[in-house]
């Protein structure tokens, strides 16, 4: 169960990079007060980042993923998170069997 020193170094480096990015925004912006278009731009960060993360799966992997994403989107109008996940998974399984 011993860990290779080179691997430890690589993991410590990645840990430092990840933590730096998580902390940097907090330290940069904790005194920021924005209005107007700048405010709208900052408010757009949550949906923009979240959709950018999943867009390759939703838009480029094929019809089952695209349609299952649409089904999850409709479910999201009404259901809590767990229901959205359940509908999305069920839809992708059914659609992959069909296509």
């Amino acid at each position: 169960m011993s860990i290779d020193p080179g691997m430890l170094l690589a993991i410590a480096m990645m840990s430092a990079v990840t933590y730096f990015t998580r902390l940097a925004g907090f330290l940069l912006a904790s005194r920021l007060s924005l209005r107007g278009r700048a405010r709208a731009a900052i408010d757009a960060i949550p949906p923009a980042v979240l959709f950018a993360l999943i867009a390759p799966v939703v838009l480029t992997h094929g019809w089952p993923e695209t349609l299952a994403a649409a089904a999850a989107g409709i479910a999201a109008l009404r259901l809590p998170l767990l229901g959205v996940i359940a509908i999305g998974i069920a839809a992708v399984v059914i659609l992959r069997a069909l296509f």
Partner: peptide, 10 residues
Amino acid sequence: RHILMGVSLA
């Protein structure tokens, strides 16, 4: 992306 996220949440 965490930097952007932090700026928004801070």
